[in-house]
């Protein structure tokens, strides 16, 4: 056996390594092509197709009608309502989570770990169940209403209103805001805050000019992690919202399961996906690393 190194051997060796990599990737690669990329492609195709009279879809006579529908008042209202609620949810989460994350980051390690575990529990708990809990809580004559009545505010009817939806969304996604914020604030070198105070900044100025910019990556990551699923939410508005609070998710589902207008549903889903891809790209651009 001769084992003399040559450029040819090096090239062949390199090639073999590449082949090994590809082989390792291949099962999941193929799986994702068949069960993800291909379905995605079909959705895009469907969005350009026409609904026929029987509720089926004709894959011919391609047109942009389904996208044109996005301009219709009903769809537009739903679109803006969804955007509005998603933004509102994100802001409320930020307002609650920022001080919380700061508080968490400034505790000793034992307290911090315990507190973190109690954030992780709702984070990992069944999402449907957590929404259902609010349905019970906010129901007519439910515990919440009883509480407000007891406190003298009278009966409250929150269930099936946009407020209930926002409460549910905040409840569902708050941990997604807390965790990246905590990670960002925890990384900050405390001496820069002291330096800021030393240089005559008051508490607010220190927050505004030092803490906030340094924790920006966490703010962006958390905001996207909350905004994106809020915009596409389906379960929460279905359980806590009413007929007047139809959001994008429910609209899409109804196009498929009720109206049987698949092209319209496909077009809206595609647009929704594009918005989320855009948001995610913004996140990566701004220096975020992992979801």
């Amino acid at each position: 056996m001769t084992a003399l190194a040559t450029p040819e051997f090096e090239a062949a060796n390199e090639k073999q390594k590449r082949r090994r990599g590809l082989l390792l990737a291949l099962p999941s690669y193929l799986y994702l092509i068949v069960f993800f990329a291909f379905p995605l492609l079909i959705v895009v195709l469907y969005s350009f197709a026409t609904r026929n009279r029987f509720g089926g879809t004709d894959l011919s006579g391609w047109n942009l009608d389904s996208y044109a529908r996005l301009g219709e008042p009903i769809v537009r209202t739903i679109l803006f309502r969804s955007l509005g609620l998603a933004i509102l949810t994100t802001l409320i989460c930020l307002l609650l989570a920022y001080p919380f994350a700061y508080f968490l980051a400034t505790r000793g390690s034992t307290i911090r770990n315990v507190m973190l575990v109690f954030v992780m529990i709702p984070f990992w708990s069944n999402f449907l169940v957590r929404n259902y809990a609010w349905r019970v809580l906010l129901g007519n004559d439910g515990p919440f209403s009883q509480l407000t009545e007891f406190l003298g505010f009278g009966e409250t009817r929150v269930l099936f209103t946009p407020t209930a939806v926002v409460i549910g969304l905040v409840y569902g996604f708050l941990p997604f805001m807390i965790l990246p914020l905590y990670a960002a604030i925890e990384r900050i070198d405390g001496r820069v805050l002291e330096a800021s105070r030393d240089l005559y900044a008051n508490g607010w100025q220190t927050f505004r000019h030092v803490l906030w910019p340094l924790s920006r990556s966490g703010v962006i990551a958390g905001s996207i992690l909350v905004f994106v699923p809020s915009l596409g939410a389906y379960v929460t508005p279905e359980i806590l919202g009413g007929a007047k609070t139809t959001l994008l998710g429910s609209y899409i589902v109804s196009q498929f399961l009720e109206a049987r207008n698949w092209p319209a549903g496909a077009a809206v889903s595609f647009v929704l996906m594009t918005v989320m891809l855009g948001a995610t790209l913004v996140y990566f651009r701004s220096g975020g690393r992992n979801l």
Partner: peptide, 8 residues
Amino acid sequence: DFPTEGSL
């Protein structure tokens, strides 16, 4: 690592 060329 393997040499690009030469004897070892």
